[in-house]
Computed example of a mutant assay.
Amino acid sequence: MSRNCILMVAGERSGDVYGAALAEALSARIPGVHIFGCAGEAMRAAGVEMIADIHEVALIGISEVVSGLPRAWRAIQNLISEAAKRQPALAILIDSPSLNLHLAKRLKSRNIPVIYFVSPQIWAWKKWRIRTIKAYVDKMLCLFDFETDIYEKAGVPVEWVGHPLVDMSGPAITREEFFRRAALDPNIHTVALLPGSRRTEVRFNLPTMLEAASQVGQSRRVQFVLASAPTIDAQWLESLAAQGYSGKSPLRTLNNTTHEALQYADVAVVASGTATIEAALRECPMIVVYRVSQFTAACARLMINVPFYSMVNLLAGHAAVPELIQNDFTAPNLASRIKLLLDDHGARNRMIEDLRKVRARLGPGGAIGRAANAVMRFMRENKASGMPVEAS
């Protein structure tokens, strides 16, 4: 095995962000380490050599996977080929179980140890994945405290590190600067729209968001910020907004401003996923929405066995935030929820209090440092390589 080589694989935007932070932490702890794998902009900026791009493998549902399969398959083959050639000391696979559990099996067959960072949501659906994890994953690093019991009972080595977003979710600019850049009035109610970090998600979620925003803007003084993730082409998003928004109120599209939008907006409409955790950390009242193809939704209903879709509600243990999923996700439904949170201060305050309790469940700061230390302990205890690693 290579003495100074680690394979790291992320399959979507959140994994790319976590991977970048973890790569930097490992580089600071392991002199001369070289990290390569499946990366996005954040991991590339952190010095990770990109063998495959997350855009090639970022798929969300069954029908969406089928249409993107050839592209994703080529990316997977490139990763396996490079891993076989370089024989890294270990692989760190981040979230994206449809991609990474397949990779874990292929890597273990080549005697490459596997650490999995960000547990698949086996407590919500596809519980049978625990068998695959036990067979092919050497160490699981969890973000949520309740996940450790599941792995301990299954005999999978596990460690809870907390959630990286606790340290990452702060705004980079002031409230005044945010509204200045957006050319919006800081004294007018602002609604943030976060349709997702993948093009397929945006196609499914944004049209209804824009229709609801158009309805809300007809009867009140309000303004909207469409927050674009770095993985989404800003011009493409602006063209969709121009086609789908017919309201009288201002709507601005801003790129790479998720943290700021959630910090300074009065209400957010958020596609179910990591962004709901970001909104909770910013104590931003929200409505969670999501839509996939009808075929994907029908299959998912057979496998999901939790009462809520959003992690915020699962951590809260009750419906702390409204969820509009699939057929419930209509423009009138969404518009009425937005108006309620803008007008009903009692409802807003109750939601904010619930979000504070959710934040407490995410652990203290320093999750990435704990994850990096866990990786180094694994390497020493299992003699994964001859890398000179510092004591954690």
Rank of each mutant, 00 (worst) to 15 (best):
A39Y: 01
I35T: 11
F36P: 04
A23W: 04
V17F: 00
A52D: 10
M50H: 07
I60P: 07
A25R: 04
D16H: 01
A91S: 13
A21N: 07
S63G: 06
E24N: 12
R74L: 14
P88G: 03
S14Q: 06
I76M: 10
A46S: 14
I60T: 15
I51K: 01
G40Q: 01
W73M: 11
G15R: 07
E82N: 10
A84R: 14
A46E: 10
A42C: 10
R71Y: 02
K85H: 11
M50R: 15
S63I: 13
Q87V: 02
A83Y: 13
L79I: 14
D95C: 04
M50L: 07
L22C: 10
R29Q: 12
A58Y: 10
R86D: 01
F36T: 04
Y18C: 06
S67F: 03
E24C: 08
V33L: 12
A45V: 01
Q77A: 10
I92R: 09
H34E: 15
G15A: 12
R13A: 15
G15Y: 06
Y18N: 11
P88Y: 10
A58D: 15
V33S: 00
L93Y: 11
V66Y: 06
V17D: 05
G47Y: 14
A46I: 06
A42P: 04
S67W: 02
H55Y: 10
Q87M: 04
I51A: 00
F36W: 05
L59V: 15
A20Y: 08
L22N: 04
G61I: 00
